[in-house]
C-alpha cells in the first residue's frame, strides 16, 4: 500500500467514515429521545408538530420521580462511600505488602469483574431475600458493592504504589499513629486517585442495571430500573412521558460524567489508570 497512495488514502478515509457513521447515529439516537420528550405529537414527520415541556411534569408525577431520585442518590451515595472505604484500605494493604496467598487474594478480587453479574446476582438476590434484605435499599446497596469494591482496589493499587514509602516512614518517625498517617498523609496524597476512582464508581453505579433489577423491590428502584419498567410497559403511558424520564436519567448520569472528565481521562472509565 506504500507504493499506492490512493489505496492508503481510501483506507484511511473509510476508517474515518466508519467512525463518523457510528458517532452520527449515536448522537442522532440521543437527539431523538430529547426531541421526542419535548414534542406534542410526532407521527410520520421529521419533527414533532409542536414543542412543549408538559411531559416532564407528567413524567415526574406518573413515575413518582422524586421518590425514585431519592432512592437512587441514597444507593449511589452509600455505594460510593463504602466501596471507597473498603477499596482504598484493601488496595493499600495489597500495594504495600507481599504475603503468601497474595495471588489468590488478587484472583478473588478480579473474579467479580470477570463473570456476568447475573450469574452471582440471582443467588445473591435469593440469599438477600432469605436474610430479609430482599427489595430493601440495603440489599440493593450490598449487591451493587460486589463489582465496585474490586474495581476501586484495582484502580487504586497503581496510585498507592506511586507514593514513596519513605514519606510514610518519615511520618511514623515523627510519631504519627496509623490513623493520623492515613488521614493527614496518605488521603491527601491519594486524593486525585480516590476522587477519580469514586467518580467512576458513581457513573457506573447509576447505569448499573442487572444487579439493581434483581434485588430491588417497588420501593427501592433506582432510576435505571424504573426506566426499564417504563419502556417494557410502553403503550401504557405516552412515549413522550417515558422519554422525558429518559432525559432526566441522562441528565443525572451526564452531569457526573462531565464532572468526572475534569479529573480523569475518559479511557480510564474502561481501562486501568496508567502509572505515569
Amino acid at each position: 500500500m506504500d507504493r499506492n497512495p490512493l489505496a492508503l488514502r481510501l483506507w484511511t478515509t473509510s476508517i474515518w467514515v466508519l467512525v463518523g457513521f457510528f458517532i452520527v447515529n449515536l448522537l442522532a439516537m440521543i437527539a431523538s429521545v430529547v426531541v421526542n420528550s419535548f414534542g406534542t405529537r410526532w407521527f410520520n414527520t421529521w419533527l414533532p408538530a409542536g414543542f412543549t415541556t408538559k411531559w416532564y411534569a407528567s413524567a415526574w408525577l406518573e413515575f413518582q420521580l422524586d421518590d425514585i431520585l431519592i432512592v437512587t442518590f441514597q444507593v449511589v451515595g452509600a455505594v460510593v462511600l463504602l466501596s471507597g472505604l473498603l477499596g482504598v484500605l484493601g488496595a493499600y494493604a495489597l500495594a504495600r505488602r507481599e504475603f503468601p496467598g497474595k495471588r489468590l487474594v488478587m484472583l478473588l478480587i478480579l473474579l467479580p469483574l470477570l463473570v456476568p453479574p447475573i450469574t452471582f446476582g440471582i443467588p445473591l438476590a435469593t440469599l438477600l431475600y432469605q436474610l430479609g434484605l430482599g427489595s430493601s435499599i440495603a440489599g440493593v446497596i450490598l449487591a451493587n458493592l460486589v463489582p465496585t469494591v474490586p474495581f476501586v482496589i484495582l484502580v487504586m493499587i497503581p496510585f498507592i504504589e506511586q507514593i514513596d514509602p519513605r514519606v510514610e516512614a518519615a511520618a511514623r518517625v515523627f510519631g504519627a499513629s496509623p490513623r493520623q498517617l492515613f488521614v493527614h498523609v496518605l488521603v491527601p496524597m491519594l486524593a486525585p486517585g480516590i476522587l477519580a476512582a469514586l467518580l467512576m464508581v458513581l457513573v457506573r453505579t447509576i447505569a448499573m442495571f442487572e444487579l439493581t433489577f434483581f434485588t430491588a423491590g417497588p420501593s427501592s428502584q433506582t432510576l435505571v430500573v424504573a426506566l426499564y419498567y417504563a419502556v417494557y410497559a410502553a403503550g401504557v403511558r405516552a412515549g413522550q412521558s417515558i422519554d422525558a424520564m429518559a432525559v432526566i436519567y441522562m441528565a443525572t448520569t451526564l452531569i457526573w460524567l462531565l464532572i468526572a472528565l475534569r479529573f480523569v481521562n475518559p479511557t480510564q472509565l474502561v481501562t486501568r489508570v496508567k502509572k505515569s
Binding site: 449515536l26 440521543i30 429521545v33 457513573v203 442495571f209 419502556v231 460524567l257 475518559p266 474502561v270
Partner: peptide, 16 residues
C-alpha cells in the same frame, strides 16, 4: 463521545 454509551447504559440505548 465514545464514553457516552457506557455512561448511559443499555436501557437508555434500547429506548433511544
Amino acid at each position: 463521545i465514545l464514553v457516552l454509551p457506557i455512561t448511559l447504559g443499555t436501557v437508555l440505548i434500547a429506548e433511544g
